[in-house]
Design a protein around this nucleic acid. Structure first.
Ligand SMILES: [Mn+2]
Ligand SMILES: [Mn+2]
Ligand SMILES: [Zn+2]
Ligand SMILES: [Zn+2]
Lengths: 150, 150
DNA sequence: TATTATTTGAGAATGATTCTCATTCCTGAA
DNA sequence: TTCAGGAATGAGAATCATTCTCAAATAATA
């Protein structure tokens, strides 16, 4: 576990170095939290997980920071709560499923062949709408097992 | 044009009747605005288009009203502004493309065969994640012609 | 038209996010 | 290693969207 933590610290530092922004305690803290919890987090969660070591205003500033560097994805839950997660590294790409009853969010990937198919289709859109498509997001809405069993 | 307006009024009234909620001036007004502008609107736009004939609080109440009846879709722009549009009627189904530069939002439909393909793929998700998928949303991010030309 | 429950309007209250600015912290040069 | 200058942070005020409250207006119904 200690090993893991060290690796995360190294990784956080590297991310900041790669992006030419100063290595500060608050930024290391936020990255550490995002690295440790791979799923998406609510702003509120990040605040809690930082256990008073981070001002709320700083947290928002840092998140916007990272967002501008395309280091994090942001999306909204069904109740319009903002959620944050580390961005996909190149190649990799994932989507989200929401349970419409309990609001849980799950990551998922589609088979690469359908992702390819999808992308082919998306490229056609350029000609139809005269828009060059840069990225896409697919979200599913459903009912998780726990909620179904109730 | 007058003809069109009358048709819209009739349609708005019918929507309210179908859903068993009282036909009131504010509700007719909001539905009229949503019917007239088929694209998605910001809350702010609806307020403007109602030209002082509608209290802000009422507008929010009515929107939530219609949302609970599944009569409208809601989504967020890139800048996290809420947008609203009349929901797809059965069968029909559409998606959105955002221009990441100017923020414009366009509706689009994917060819039915890929939509089918997509849905097939989505069904598999049930077994993988043990979630029954009810609906999906696909959003594209790109660059529109006007922005490209600049 | 009169009755009654529902809806509306106005503005207060709330909650999330941004802003401000004095203080603290990084970093690179000496 | 120390230090100076510029950038980042913390605390709380300000802003903005949305919800809440409740008295007054309105719609459905007979
Ligand atoms: Mn995710
Ligand atoms: Mn649309
Ligand atoms: Zn659930
Ligand atoms: Zn554009």
């Amino acid at each position: 576990m200690q090993k893991n933590k060290k690796r995360q610290i190294k990784k956080s530092r590297q991310i900041l170095l790669d992006n030419n922004i100063p290595i500060t305690k608050p930024r290391m803290l936020v990255l550490g939290i995002l690295l440790k919890n791979e799923g998406p987090l609510k702003v509120e969660d990040i605040i809690k997980l930082s256990r008073g070591k981070l001002a709320v205003s700083s947290m928002y500033r840092i998140i916007n920071n990272l967002k501008n560097l395309n280091l994090i994805n942001e999306f909204q839950t069904l109740e319009n709560t903002k959620m944050i997660e580390l961005a996909d590294v190149k190649d990799e790409h994932h989507h989200h499923i929401f349970c419409e009853s309990c609001g849980a969010v799950y990551d998922f990937e589609v088979d690469s062949h359908i992702e390819k198919e999808l992308e082919k289709e998306i490229i056609k859109i350029k000609s139809k709408y005269d828009i060059i498509v840069k990225s896409h997001s697919l979200e599913l809405l459903g009912l998780c097992k726990t909620c179904r069993d109730k």
